[in-house]
Design a binder for these strands. Structure first.
Length: 678
DNA sequence: ATCTCCAATT
């Protein structure tokens, strides 16, 4: 058009923003000025919004100057959007100046300012403003509720939510999402039910929030209900809602459904691919994750971002693909122009650590351009536990207990390392430190959903109404397992108590109780699904493998980091988390002894690694010898060399087993339901 | 005919 009017410019600017291209929107304004069209009060709100999205304060300031020159400072829309722009860029002072610029300011401007204070963490200023202003609308309350929740003041948010004169959809959304952001998923779901009863319409935004809550607690039934609600009401699956949905399915163990949603999504954005890649990674399907990562570039011409690489690298870490992981890590910057951030380094440290490559991991940490955070050191500490590296573990533990004195998980990990090495004095020291600092250990909790009801079991807590029955069942299960040679693996018990007592404690682990409960209350052959807050201990992992075969059940356990699919005696994680064990299993398998069936009677002190050392060169029962220098390769590709064998001391007694555990990779032959390459 | 505050995903 020869002379487009302001209206048309405004429309095209808005169009750019709606298509997720704020930079282009701002560039359009430049063209508009060059074309000598006069911007009006409709032009600036959109532009300020664009600046707020990309954090372009300087451009925002220039626009602000134009607003003043054009005499548009008095317009409410212009001012509120300018306030938001400044506040979102962290410039509260300037935001406040805009508010005070003229005597009269409408409610929307005040709300923007309240929200601005809260976004910058200034709870006092926001509260003062909220209380000083007599004229309030729903938006004022909503801004306070979401802001309080964001700043961790969830009780205050709840109080306002209960007291406010009237609520709209945003009020419900704000409180529900507030709970979720604070990790209170149960409360979020309760309020969501209340919202449904109130007759409020369920919009996309609240549905995505609730799906996130479902994903976190593993509430598959609730998530399915929302999926059905979406279909029933013909709600369009946009990129955000679709991503929330597929993420929920992936995190609730239903990769098949996640994939179906993903494939049928009309609009996919980078974060949708990220969610699917991350889901595959979590389930240990590294090959599929990598295939999808290539597909997004090949078919959609999408550029992977930092989060995509978190997915790809963690997929490699879960599957032990050391070389590929390193290769993708190196290509990030070179090929994709994505600067590795601290979390990417964390992934690689995890990857190297699990493979036992301590020198390489430490070398990498040294080369980091940023200060390594607790997560990076934590990844290395985890590796020390897996490989029984007490020396480094002790040093790192000390560092981490200073860096994150409130993180109970670190104390637990360090105790494990010491306990495995039989250093009970050090275990006691860690315990004392926890006591002094008033740190509570997180108890193991497992959740199982039956017919829409959530049952939670906490370690050592017998408060479930059917506890007696469950205990009987659990004893029966353990007895059956013992008949095929199961022996409790007490190496991860953190107390220096006698073996029998250790075994009793293992039987109180929440996942065992939840599985027994599941066996009692579901029909034969159905899948049992459990969500656990911590990692699964080695003994529970072994026991569950056996249960899956003995009872012919598929058992899916989600732990704090990943999924375990147990079927017919093996697990989809290929025992990667338990390298020690793996060495033994592999070793024993090659020598015709069943791995889960070993029992050490002599030299009960020390870890399996320690025993491996002790046993070096000695004749074992059944006539097998471990030679120093001998290497073992695990199924997950880790090579372990018995080069550190120090002394030949106590011989180990190993009972012969009646059967053999299948060590076949779980998914490689069972890959039909998810054909990424097609 | 257009524009503002408060709510969503990896």
């Amino acid at each position: 058009m020869p002379q487009p009017h302001a209206f048309l410019w405004n429309s095209i600017i808005k169009g750019c923003l709606n298509n997720n291209d704020p930079q282009e929107a701002l560039f359009m304004y430049y063209k508009m000025v060059v074309a000598q069209a006069w911007p009006n009060e409709f032009t600036f709100p959109t532009l300020f919004k664009a600046c707020a999205v990309v954090g372009a304060v300087e451009k925002g300031e220039q626009l602000h100057a134009h607003v003043m020159k054009l005499g548009l400072v008095g317009d409410g829309h212009v001012r509120s959007s300018a306030i938001r722009m400044y506040a979102k860029c962290g410039r509260v002072k300037e935001a406040r100046q805009v508010l005070d610029e003229s005597r009269e300011a409408d409610v929307v401007c005040w709300n923007a300012m309240i929200d601005g204070y809260l976004k910058c963490g200034d709870v006092e200023a926001a509260t003062a403003l909220f209380e000083a202003k007599e004229e309030k609308n729903v938006g004022s309350w909503n801004a306070m509720i979401s802001g309080y929740a964001r700043c961790g003041k969830i009780e205050l948010a709840e109080k306002l939510f209960r007291e406010m004169p009237q609520r709209d959809e945003i009020s419900w959304s704000a409180i529900i999402d507030g709970y979720i952001k604070q990790g209170c998923f149960k409360e979020a779901l309760i309020v969501f039910h209340e919202m449904q009863n109130s007759g409020a319409r369920l919009r996309k935004s609240v549905l995505s929030s609730v799906l996130a809550a479902c994903a976190n607690v593993g509430a598959l039934d609730e998530g399915k209900w929302i999926h059905a609600y979406i279909s029933r009401n013909s709600i369009q699956l946009d990129a955000i809602l679709g991503t929330s949905l597929l993420d929920m399915y992936a995190k609730c163990g239903r990769l098949d459904m996640a994939w179906e949603v993903f494939e049928n999504m009309k609009q996919k954005r980078v974060f949708s691919w990220n969610a699917m890649i991350g889901g595959l990674a979590m389930h240990g399907r590294a090959k599929d994750a990598i295939e999808l990562f290539l597909k997004m570039q090949r078919d959609e011409n999408l550029k992977p971002d930092g989060i995509t690489f978190v997915g790809v690298l963690s997929a490699c870490a879960h599957a032990g693909l050391v070389e590929q992981g390193l290769q993708y890590f190196n290509s990030m910057k070179q090929k994709y122009g994505v600067e590795p951030a601290v979390e990417h380094y964390g992934c690689i440290v995890n990857l190297l650590g699990r493979a036992g490559l301590f020198a390489e991991a430490q070398e990498l940490i040294k080369s980091m351009p940023m200060t390594p955070n607790a997560a990076v050191w934590g990844a290395l500490l985890g590796a020390c536990r897996t490989h029984g590296n007490v020396e480094l573990g002790g040093k790192l533990g000390k560092l981490l207990l200073e860096l994150e004195p409130q993180n109970s998980g670190r104390y637990a990990l360090l105790s494990h390392i010491y306990a495995n090495a039989g250093r009970w004095d050090d275990v006691a020291n860690v315990r004392t430190l926890m006591k002094d600092r008033n740190i509570k250990t997180a108890s193991g909790r497992s959740v199982i959903n039956l017919n829409g009801v959530t049952h939670e079991f906490v370690m050592g807590d017998g408060s479930h109404p059917h506890m007696k029955q469950i205990n009987v069942m659990l004893e029966e299960v353990i007895e059956k397992l013992r008949l095929v040679g199961y022996v409790p693996n007490t190496t991860q018990v953190l107390f220096d108590i006698d073996e029998e007592e250790k075994e009793t404690r293992l039987c109180r682990h929440s996942e065992k109780i939840a599985i027994a409960f599941g066996l009692l209350n579901t029909s034969p052959g159905t899948t049992i699904q459990i969500v656990k807050n911590l990692r699964v201990c080695e003994d529970c992992h072994d026991a569950t493998k056996l249960i899956s075969r003995m009872y012919d059940r598929e058992i899916i356990v989600r732990d704090r980091v990943r999924y375990h699919h147990f079927r017919n005696g093996s697990c989809s994680c290929k025992d990667f988390c338990y390298v020690h064990r793996k060495v033994w299993q592999h070793y024993l398998k090659t020598n015709c002894i069943w791995g889960s069936n070993l029992k050490e009677r002599e030299g009960s002190e020390g870890s399996r690694a320690g025993k491996l050392k002790e046993a070096g060169g000695e004749q074992l029962v059944l006539g097998v010898t471990i030679e120093p220098g001998q290497t073992f390769s695990t199924d997950s590709g880790v090579t372990i060399t018995i080069s550190e064998v120090e002394a030949a001391s106590t011989p180990l007694e190993i009972q012969e087993g009646s059967d053999s555990t299948s060590l076949e990779p779980f998914f490689e032959k069972d890959n039909g339901d998810l054909n990424v390459t097609q």
